[in-house]
Simulated assay, not measured.
Amino acid sequence: MGVLLCKWLLPVWMSAVHPFYMSVTEIRYNQPRKSLEVSCRIFTDDLENALKKYNKTSLDIIKPKDRPAVDTMIARYLRQHFALSADGKTLPLHYLGYQISEDAAWCFLEYTPMTPFKHLDIQNDVLYAEHDTQGHMIHLIVGDRRKSTKIDNPKATASFDL
């Protein structure tokens, strides 16, 4: 009985000692709108702590006193830590805003006008300075095709060929 209890409790205890740090990014090519739509799901507390450190200020991204200032901080942070290039051309992403859902902040970016592409490079080191074990799940959706990959700190790049 004790061995079974240890086998069950040890993983629970270890997860409490070593939290799980993972973001999810979905990149969708919207052919009718000729846009590349990006949504990044980042744990709210992790993003808030990174913004506090990066901007040397206190803030609350769930109930901000100054939403435009928080949007500016998030946009600047993402511009420094997340980038895309298609067929060798850097895509200057436009930050659209963020939304809180449960324990995560969904950050939305877009590039338009986007033409069809054959190769996409992603640079993503969001939260790497804060968490040695940070990882990113990245999904690319083009039409009915979906490709996915995972990168972990310190690896900060991924590529997709269509």
Results as ranks from 00 to 15, higher is better:
Phe117Ser: 04
Asp103Ser: 10
Thr57Ala: 12
Gly135Tyr: 08
Met22Asn: 09
Cys107Lys: 13
Arg28Asn: 11
Asp45Ile: 04
Lys65Cys: 03
Asp103Tyr: 12
Arg41Ala: 12
Val12Asn: 05
His136Asp: 10
Leu96Arg: 13
Pro113Met: 09
Glu130Ala: 10
His136Tyr: 03
Val24Arg: 01
Ala105Asp: 06
Met73Asp: 09
Pro113Cys: 10
Trp106Phe: 15
Val70Trp: 04
Ile141His: 11
Pro92Ile: 01
Ala104Asp: 07
Asp46Met: 01
Phe82His: 01
Asp103Ala: 10
Ile74Ala: 10
Lys65Ala: 11
Pro11Phe: 08
Thr57Gln: 13
Gln123Tyr: 04
Trp8Ile: 14
Ala86Trp: 00
Lys63Ser: 04
Arg145Pro: 00
Ser58His: 15
Ile74His: 07
Pro64His: 02
Asp144Trp: 03
Tyr111Gln: 00
Gly143Ile: 08
Tyr21Glu: 09
Ser35His: 03
Leu84Ser: 00
Pro19Ile: 09
Leu120Glu: 00
Arg79Val: 00
Asp60Glu: 08
Ala83Asp: 07
Thr25Met: 07
Tyr98Glu: 11
Pro11His: 05
Ala83Lys: 05
His94Gln: 08
Trp8Thr: 13
Lys118Gln: 14
Glu110Met: 14
Leu91Pro: 00
Trp13Met: 09
Val70Ala: 03
Asp125Arg: 06
Asp103Arg: 12
Leu127Trp: 05
Phe43Asp: 06
Lys65Ile: 11
Pro92Thr: 02
Leu127Asp: 09
Gln80Trp: 06
Leu10Ser: 06
Gly97Pro: 13
Asn55Asp: 09
Leu91Thr: 02
Thr112Asn: 10
Val126Met: 08
Thr57Phe: 12
Met137Ala: 13
